[in-house]
Structures are given as structure tokens and as C-alpha cells.
């Protein structure tokens, strides 16, 4: 049986036992600013907005893990502590960070390519949208 399963069987509290108000507020602010930036026209702002949203989501994962400060799940001497920090949210957040790192790198490359092609940082109009707008103005052809 794994150490974790053993710990759970011995009745160690694993469930989150509260969360930090400050962190929760930070998550909210990050989500808000990220959303705001995402809705902007310049591509760089969109990218930064996405980065902030990713941070917000990762932080939310950590908040879901409960308050910090408890012992890691197995003590150095192999004993199982009374109340222990839940390692899973950290692991998940780390994985999410790895993934967002890779995707952001790719996104930056594509954005750079877009800049190289158009010499402009602004999100281009959708040709289909323009066509529809044209139709509406002129009446159906």
C-alpha cells in the first residue's frame, strides 16, 4: 500500500481545512485583470491576459489544497503527522504550470509570426465578419 493510502487509512486529515482570504482575493483580481486584458485588441495584451488567467487558475488549485504550513505528508522519520499538507494540488499546479509554459511559448511564436507577416500587433478583422457587415450595409446581393 502506498504511503498516502496508509496515511489516509490511519485517519490523518487530508481534506482542506480552510483557505487564505488573501490568496482568494488575489485569484479574483488575477481573473478580473486577465479577462479585461483578454478582451483588448492588441495581441500582446491578449497574451498577457491569458498568462494572468493561467496564473489565477493555478493559484486557485493551490487555494483548493487548503492552508499552507502543515507538515509534508510523511515526516522525515517516517511518522505520519496528525494534520498534513495535501501534496496533490501542488503537483497538479506544477503540471499545469509546465503545460502553460509550453503553450505560452508556442503562442508567443505564433504571435511573433503574425507580427512578422502583418507588421501589426492588433488582432485582425475576421474576413467573414467583414463580409457579413458589408452585406448588412448593402443589402443582400
Amino acid at each position: 500500500m502506498s504511503a498516502l493510502a496508509r496515511a489516509a487509512a490511519e485517519g490523518t486529515v487530508l481534506a482542506p481545512t480552510g483557505s487564505s482570504l488573501v490568496l482568494a482575493l488575489v485569484v479574483g483580481v488575477l481573473f478580473a485583470t486577465g479577462t479585461y486584458l483578454l478582451l483588448q485588441r492588441p495581441l500582446t495584451r491578449v497574451l498577457i491576459g491569458l498568462a494572468l488567467l493561467t496564473h489565477a487558475a493555478n493559484l486557485l488549485l493551490l487555494v483548493a489544497g487548503g492552508l499552507s504550513g502543515a507538515a509534508p505528508f510523511i515526516g522525515d522519520d517516517g511518522s505520519v503527522p496528525e494534520r498534513m499538507a495535501d501534496p496533490l494540488p501542488q503537483a497538479m499546479a506544477l503540471t499545469a504550470i509546465v503545460i502553460s509554459f509550453a503553450v505560452s511559448a508556442l503562442l508567443l511564436a505564433v504571435a511573433y509570426r503574425s507580427y512578422a507577416l502583418t507588421r501589426d500587433d492588433v488582432v485582425q478583422d475576421d474576413p467573414e465578419d467583414s463580409r457579413i457587415a458589408h452585406h448588412v450595409e448593402e443589402g443582400p446581393s
Partner: peptide, 13 residues
């Protein structure tokens, strides 16, 4: 890809 010697890259660009 993003550096000045862009050209011999793996990713788009």
C-alpha cells in the same frame, strides 16, 4: 524562434 536569428527553428516562424 523568437530570437534574432529566427530561421532555423522547430516551431512556427
Amino acid at each position: 524562434t523568437l530570437g534574432e536569428q529566427a530561421g532555423t527553428s522547430l516551431a512556427p516562424g
